[in-house]
């Protein structure tokens, strides 16, 4: 793991829009091979946090540091991380072309491209749909494709924003196994979800965000058995958190 871009250390992140503070003094780190689940009520700032960490938006203040001196194996920082969005974004191309496109931009050489695309499609169970226009897939299949596409380049870290919202239990399970498999192979995962059951099943660490702040973080077991903050306790009980 010495050549990973992880650990990622974000310190004192602050993100403001027109004077409104949306992320406030938030520090978090992601270590190689970890599986972090981000929890928190709607509007807490979870999606913003993922965007900040992934570098899609720039913090108003604070620092985001990737592992210094990481051996990048000829790939850029951006090529070694990936993100799955709340709404699946698929190119107007075939299933296979979607995977190949992502692989190319993630720095896969022509030699590895074919094989990597092949195995990604197989793992997602979409090998027989490869020629189908991606946008004709069902929502569940689309989400599987998006996750498989993000994982195809074997990123060091994958950010996911509610990838299984509105999926049926079987599809949820398929995506979860993709994540577990990738995590076992060395990809660190940062997953935002509202599904507490999923958080229990998958999370090694939990980060609880409330009103733009990281209210609580730590091992999953202790978080679920003994949450420290009022907000987390109320959230876990299914109460309305204000």
């Amino acid at each position: 793991m010495s050549d990973s871009i992880l650990p990622l250390a974000a310190r004192n992140l602050r993100y403001e829009v027109n004077g409104t503070v949306l992320i406030d003094d938030l520090s978090i780190s992601v270590v190689p091979g970890s599986f972090t689940v981000v929890l928190g009520p709607n509007g807490a700032g979870k999606s913003l946090l993922l965007r900040l960490l992934h570098g899609l938006i720039v913090p108003t203040s604070g620092k985001i540091d990737w592992s210094v001196g990481a051996e990048l194996r000829g790939r850029t920082l951006r090529q070694r991380q990936a993100m799955v969005f709340q709404r699946p974004v698929l190119l107007r191309r075939s299933v296979e072309a979607n995977v190949r496109y992502a692989l190319k931009w993630q720095g896969a050489g022509p030699g590895e491209l074919k094989e990597a695309a092949e195995s990604a499609l197989h793992r997602a169970g979409l090998a027989d749909r490869r020629r189908v226009p991606a946008r004709l897939l069902s929502v569940g299949e689309q989400q599987r494709l998006v996750v498989a596409r993000a994982l195809a380049g074997k990123p060091d870290v994958l950010f996911l924003d509610e990838p299984t919202a509105s999926l049926d239990p079987a599809s949820v399970q398929q995506i979860e196994s993709l994540l577990i498999e990738a995590n076992a192979a060395g990809t660190a995962i940062v997953l935002v979800t509202h599904d507490i059951g999923q958080a229990r099943r998958l999370g090694h660490e939990i980060a609880f965000v409330h009103r733009g702040r990281l209210v609580e973080s730590g091992g999953a077991e202790s978080f679920f058995s003994d949450p420290q903050s009022d907000a987390a306790r109320a959230y876990l009980k299914g109460e309305i958190v204000v």
Binding site: R51, H54, L56, T76, R78, Q79, A82, M83, F85, V89, L91, R92, R93, Y101, A102, W105, Q106
Partner: peptide
Amino acid sequence: EYDEALKSLGVRGLGLVRTLLWDARY
């Protein structure tokens, strides 16, 4: 629609223009 997904992949410049033109082909 594509902005964040393409940024996430590091698609920029001429590649971005080409991708969008191709996907808007119809």
